[in-house]
Design a protein around this nucleic acid. Structure first.
Lengths: 302, 302
DNA sequence: GATCCCGATACCTGGAAAGTATCGGGCTCT
DNA sequence: AGAGCCCGATACTTTCCAGGTATCGGGATC
């Protein structure tokens, strides 16, 4: 049996007339007659009764018509769904995030993606950098968000944002009165460092910047994530450097101040990583969304 | 798209290797490669990633594989169901009966049919002769059971059974003591006649036989159906002639006696009627069952 | 770096589907 | 009643596409 048979059969059943059905199918009458005969032979069943005015379905034919329509619509649906999936419009995308990245940028990005690709199910996982790379290679996830990447074979990356650093400081500290603060003036302040876990991390970035400014920071505390760090700042345990988006954490007692004489490398990237050989249209669609976001984050995602 | 595409696609997806899939499909590798390319082109979607070791499904391909399997099994089911229906093994058969016919023969017949055709849904309707013919012509039923048929254009018939007549008589009547009873001896007994309704009916048969025997029967009562008639016999209202199978109605006070010197026409047929042009395999199957029943009612349906 | 494996490509062949022409049977309308 | 018409079936031809053979080319393996 052939899909042609089904298509032809449905047309004849609907027109109740082989000639008219042939016109509708843009073929001539004889081949249509033959195809119908063939279908009947193959099934070993009479589907039509030939009358002087045309043809009429037998009861068996009625049954087969239902089945044929069913199959036909299923094929159309399958085609459409597959094409949607091929354009990245349908499916499932597993994405990993780390702790603080989730604060502001990533939710906005996910929201925008969902708006454009409503039938893609995005599943979020929380993983640190090493876990993300392992999960990528094992194909458990398709994309991970992270910072401070080191090149890894088979893994490609793309910048999402590159943010300036801010100083998070307790509002009772005299330095908090200034509109901006130089790194040097923090030499005698205790630092809260984060995140513990896989290296290189933001800890190394902070320490590196201080050393570049001529001092080694006093370490008050090392904590796992940025939220804990800010809560310690609120309690007066010390200060810390954070990315711009962290300032959405409006803890009482904490103020954020820009750094004066900002060195070139006083920025922190937010990037995403993915398998270099991943040709999935879903990933491509998501990366495209990231590029849009990077180029006009304010305009498109207010 | 073509069913071939689906079959080939499924084979390749399962073998993960075009060459091996080609062997399994009993074709050579190049046409298979081309068919897969064609399918991809038509859908506008990459279904496989070509690797040095063979091919691998893309995520889009995985989706399409599910759909393809789905469609494939649906087609197989449709074919099978249609063929069943074509052999009269599946579908719905609307059958009409009249009152007393339902007593014994028809239930046995239906039981036997259901055993051989378990997936045919038999729907019973109660109709008199004229209602049956109207319903047949309107295609509301496919078959009707009846007696004493008159030829009708477009309606064919087939004999089911031809039963002798019995006398139903109250056991207090002296005639009930004899092992058989002649019609003539009933000349002064009151008769219960049935069924009222469309003619010719069993009433005419009874009256005709009496006149043939040389008398006109005294009519005690006309009733609608045989069950009422027998209950009146039990109450001593009179006697009546009934078909053999009616003797399953074992009312207290009623005995059944054969007629002595039985004339040739002291039989009553049970026939079925159907549209002469009805080529339905369901009807054919049922008629066949009737023929089997008629030839060996005792052996096959004890 | 030689070999092997696997998919892709080029070209040819055969068979099936579509086209043209025509038949034949049954209904309709004068 | 008979001519004409409608519709499906059949005979024959043409066209197109699936499938076959031979071969290429690229990546992996030893």
């Amino acid at each position: 049996m052939d899909l042609r048979h089904l298509k032809y059969f449905i047309a004849v059943a609907e027109e109740k007339n082989i000639g008219r059905a042939a016109v509708r199918l843009h073929i001539s009458q004889p081949p249509l007659t033959r195809q119908i005969q063939q279908l009947e032979d193959e099934l070993g069943v009479r589907l039509f009764i030939r009358t002087p005015r045309g043809v009429e379905l037998t009861s068996t034919g009625e049954l087969f018509l239902e089945e044929a329509r069913n199959i036909h619509s299923l094929i159309e649906q399958a085609t459409e769904r597959t094409q949607l999936a091929g354009r990245g419009k349908l499916g499932r995308l597993d994405i990993a995030t780390f702790g603080s990245g989730i604060l502001d940028t990533i939710p906005k990005l996910l929201l925008a993606f969902r708006k454009n690709y409503p039938d893609v199910k995005v599943v979020l996982h929380t993983m640190n950098k090493n876990e993300q790379i392992e999960a990528l290679l094992q194909r458990r996830i398709s994309l991970g968000f992270n910072r401070l990447l080191t090149p890894t074979p088979g893994i490609a990356s793309e910048l999402v944002t590159n943010e300036s650093l801010l100083l998070a400081i307790n509002k009772n500290d005299p330095l908090s009165k200034a509109s901006e603060v130089s790194l040097q003036s923090l030499a005698d302040h205790p630092f809260i460092l984060f995140p513990t876990g896989s290296r290189p991390s933001f800890i190394d970035k902070t320490v590196g910047l201080c050393q570049q400014a001529g001092f080694t920071p006093q370490v008050s505390q090392e904590v796992e994530d940025v939220v804990t760090a800010i809560s310690l700042v609120a309690s007066g345990f010390g200060i810390c450097l954070v990315s711009e988006t962290t300032s959405v954490l409006a803890f009482p007692g904490v103020v954020y101040r820009p750094l004066a004489h900002l060195p070139e490398n006083a920025h922190i990237d937010l990037s995403c990583i993915f398998r270099a050989d991943d040709g999935s249209p879903l990933l491509a669609a998501f990366l495209n969304e990231i590029r849009n976001f990077r180029e006009s984050p304010g305009k498109r995602y207010p």
